[in-house]
Lab assay of single mutants.
Amino acid sequence: MEVRTIKVFTTVDNINLHTQVVDMSMTYGQQFGPTYLDGADVTKIKPHNSHEGKTFYVLPNDDTLRVEAFEYYHTTDPSFLGRYMSALNHTKKWKYPQVNGLTSIKWADNNCYLATALLTLQQIELKFNPPALQDAYYRARAGEAANFCALILAYCNKTVGELGDVRETMSYLFQHANLDSCKRVLNVVCKTCGQQQTTLKGVEAVMYMGTLSYEQFKKGVQIPCTCGKQATKYLVQQESPFVMMSAPPAQYELKHGTFTCASEYTGNYQCGHYKHITSKETLYCIDGALLTKSSEYKGPITDVFYKENSYTTTIK
């Protein structure tokens, strides 16, 4: 009895394709271990004539594949690729409408935090270190965002349907971005203890939790000093293409032309909904596939993004 075979390709990165001759009487799992086709788990399936010449994702289970996976995804987590594939199996079914010149995501599976993050990423200057993220990001900007969303979920250790947080998501993504040249110098002034300067680099240099107003941050924000008295913390120097200011959701007025974009969060910790506000020729609110415009805006804002380049204080 002759062994019926077909020729397929296996890959971990969709760049390096490895030619395989597979036995049609055995499952993919018996031949390769966990195997995925377009995100779908085909591990328990036997090869079919229609699979001839198709590319299958496999887990990096030998040295060659491990090197290829690390170079593309910059992670050695053995569960990463499987999590990416199972997320992709959902995100490829989502709709990605162009809204006001940006790629958004039609609401499904509690994905409003991903839509808000995706919209924000198209408006701030950011370059990702893992080629996987950078490639998928370019495709997302062009309207094909399924891979990018699935990668975000995998890097953030999230599953489809789980509630997510924009600030946490951005923080994970910033860790995989090139923020080497970003720098922030802060000064804390206390009447009792004097003053202390701190220099922050990388992710810490672009994120701040405690106030939404970048102007206020430049002037000074009140913080408790270690001595128990009130101290003032203010920005001395900022070198970065953008800054992200966050605070627990509270009524906040966004003035046209003073910011790049913002995240609105309605609801409580267990259950809520994100919308995205962007400042173009007027203010726009993007909620999944829905767009509304207004000249002014007041609502429960939790993150505001500002364009920056270089700032030095005039406070002496």
Rank of each mutant, 00 (worst) to 15 (best):
R4G: 13
T5P: 11
I6C: 12
V8Y: 06
F9R: 10
T10K: 10
T11N: 01
L17R: 10
T19E: 13
Q20K: 15
V22R: 03
D23C: 11
D23L: 12
M24N: 12
S25Q: 09
S25A: 13
Y28R: 07
G29D: 08
Q30M: 10
Q30H: 13
Q31K: 12
Q31F: 14
T35A: 15
T35M: 14
Y36A: 04
D38R: 09
D41H: 06
K44E: 14
I45R: 12
P47V: 08
H48Q: 13
H48W: 14
H48T: 14
N49Q: 13
E52M: 10
T55W: 08
F56R: 03
N61H: 11
D63E: 13
D63L: 07
T64S: 13
T64C: 13
L65Q: 07
V67S: 14
E68V: 04
E71C: 09
E71D: 09
Y72D: 03
H74W: 03
T75E: 08
T75F: 08
P78K: 13
S79N: 15
S79A: 15
F80D: 01
G82E: 14
Y84G: 02
Y84K: 06
Y84V: 04
M85L: 14
A87V: 02
A87Q: 07
N89R: 11
H90L: 11
H90S: 12
K93L: 14
K93C: 10
K95V: 14
P97G: 07
Q98C: 12
V99F: 14
G101T: 06
T103F: 07
W107I: 04
W107D: 04
C112D: 00
L114T: 02
L114M: 06
A115C: 14
A115I: 05
T116F: 02
T116V: 15
A117I: 10
A117Q: 04
L118T: 04
L118P: 04
L118N: 05
T120N: 11
L121I: 10
E125S: 08
E125Y: 08
L126H: 03
L126W: 11
K127V: 10
F128T: 01
N129P: 02
P130E: 10
P130T: 08
P130N: 04
Q134C: 08
A136W: 06
Y137V: 05
Y138F: 13
E144D: 12
A145C: 08
N147F: 04
F148D: 01
F148R: 03
A150T: 05
A150Y: 00
L151W: 05
L153K: 00
C156F: 00
C156S: 08
K158S: 06
T159V: 14
G161C: 07
G161M: 02
L163V: 07
G164L: 01
E168C: 14
T169P: 06
L173G: 00
L173T: 05
F174S: 05
Q175C: 06
Q175D: 07
H176S: 03
L179P: 00
D180S: 12
D180W: 08
S181M: 12
S181H: 15
C182Q: 09
K183P: 03
V185E: 07
L186E: 12
L186Y: 14
N187V: 12
N187S: 11
C190D: 01
T192Q: 11
C193F: 03
C193G: 05
C193H: 03
G194S: 02
Q195M: 15
Q195H: 11
Q195T: 15
Q196W: 13
Q197E: 13
T198G: 03
T199G: 04
L200K: 08
L200Y: 11
G202K: 01
G202Y: 04
E204N: 11
V206Y: 02
M207H: 08
M207T: 12
M209L: 08
L212T: 07
Y214P: 08
E215P: 04
E215F: 08
Q216G: 06
F217L: 15
K218L: 04
G220K: 03
V221W: 05
V221Y: 04
V221T: 07
Q222G: 06
Q222K: 12
I223N: 03
C225N: 00
T226N: 10
G228A: 02
Q230N: 10
T232S: 06
T232E: 05
T232V: 14
T232W: 09
K233M: 15
Q237M: 11
S240N: 01
P241S: 08
P241G: 00
F242N: 02
F242A: 08
M245H: 01
S246R: 03
S246L: 01
P249W: 00
Q251S: 09
Y252N: 00
E253H: 11
E253C: 08
L254M: 09
K255F: 08
F259I: 05
T260M: 14
T260A: 12
T266Y: 05
T266G: 05
Q270G: 07
C271P: 03
C271E: 08
G272W: 00
H273E: 00
H276Y: 12
S279V: 02
E281C: 06
E281W: 00
Y284Q: 09
C285V: 14
D287Y: 00
L291S: 14
K293D: 01
S294Q: 14
S294I: 15
S295L: 14
S295Q: 15
K298R: 11
G299L: 04
D303H: 00
F305S: 00
Y306V: 02
Y306E: 01
Y306C: 00
E308L: 10
E308W: 04
N309P: 09
T312D: 06
T314P: 03
I315C: 15
